[in-house]
Amino acid sequence: MSLALLWIPATIAASLLQTARNLTQRSLTDIIGVVGATQVRFLFGLPFALLFLVLVCLVAARLPPGIDGKVLAFALGGALAQIAATALMLAAMRTHSFAVTTAYTKTEPVQVAIFGALLLGDPLGWGKFAAIIVATIGVIVVSWKPGQKLTAAGMRPAVLGIGSGAFFALSAIGFRGAIQALPEGGFFIRATTILALGLTLQTVLLTLYMLVANRPALVLSLRNWRRSLSAGFLGAAASQCWFIGFSLTSAANVRTLALIEVPLAQIASRRIFAEGTSRRELVGMALIVLGVGALLLLAIS
């Protein structure tokens, strides 16, 4: 496989790891609340990110690339957006099914394609944009139930999920911008450096917030350290794979391929939470697969 196509297996691995992490975080929301479960992926993920960076530096026999103001600004923007996205996603999961919430968050690719083109100058041809639209329509088909009334209560999960997707889009752009802004180094060490930087910023910000505003949730996350550690490792490993993808191709390509997470979430919901899958949801997942497949053909050709 060409090195340029390494983003494909990296993104698939990231989607698998993220699905497992979301399941773990969802189980923690009932114990330590939304903010506590949000904080877990960062606080307990940071040690693994630092370990990844040490190993990469040892293998490469070099120090991490230097971090300047531009890199820090992009990384901070990505870090803050990811915190907001994770909190909104977990809040939506408390009111709606795991699979449907995941689908709402995956309205992200259209937003990330536009943000990427505007902010980073990532190329976006009509073919790729059409593939993204088809996959996103599949997400909408999966998410929307026939006859669903537009009540405030009924719209709340959709607003939370789509808002989460928007912040995930901004997060992807921020972290890709930070990786690109690093002055030197190969794709692997640049991706791992930004992973460690991003998780450090997120851990400091959320821990300080929780010490002031929600100390009991912080204490509960430490008491439930086994489950929290699992979520942290899965989150750090998923982010490592995401960042490898961001270092090799546009965020739009990565996030569109990541829509395979929607069928994965459907499988998880059916097996773990006994949440069934309707014909409409199967049609939506087929559209997602079609859009993702078209994107891959365009990326490979």
Rank of each mutant, 00 (worst) to 15 (best):
A103Y: 06
T29F: 04
L119S: 04
N22I: 13
F187K: 07
V34W: 01
R94Y: 13
G232A: 12
G291P: 07
S171K: 03
P263T: 09
T151A: 03
P9G: 10
A75E: 05
N214G: 09
L259G: 06
L23P: 06
G293W: 02
V35C: 05
C241V: 15
A84Q: 00
A294Y: 06
R190H: 14
M155N: 08
G147N: 05
L220S: 11
Q111E: 12
S269R: 04
A14F: 05
S221E: 08
V292R: 00
G125E: 11
D30R: 07
A178D: 14
Q18Y: 15
A99L: 10
V100L: 05
L206E: 02
A238G: 12
V112C: 05
I114F: 09
V110E: 00
V59A: 10
T193L: 04
E261K: 03
L16C: 08
P263V: 04
A237P: 08
P146Q: 06
G154W: 08
L43C: 05
A113F: 04
T38K: 02
A37Y: 00
S221I: 08
M285G: 03
R21F: 15
V289Q: 01
F129C: 13
F188E: 11
T11L: 04
L150F: 13
L218T: 07
M155P: 08
A274K: 02
T19N: 11
A99T: 08
A153V: 14
R176W: 06
R271E: 11
A169Y: 07
R190F: 12
R156L: 14
T101I: 10
L53D: 06
G161V: 11
R94T: 13
T203S: 11
N22H: 13
G69T: 15
A75W: 00
M1G: 12
A10T: 12
L234T: 12
L58W: 09
A268S: 12
D68P: 04
R26S: 04
V100E: 02
G161M: 11
R270I: 15
A236H: 03
F98L: 08
I260V: 15
A231T: 13
S171N: 12
A131V: 03
T19G: 09
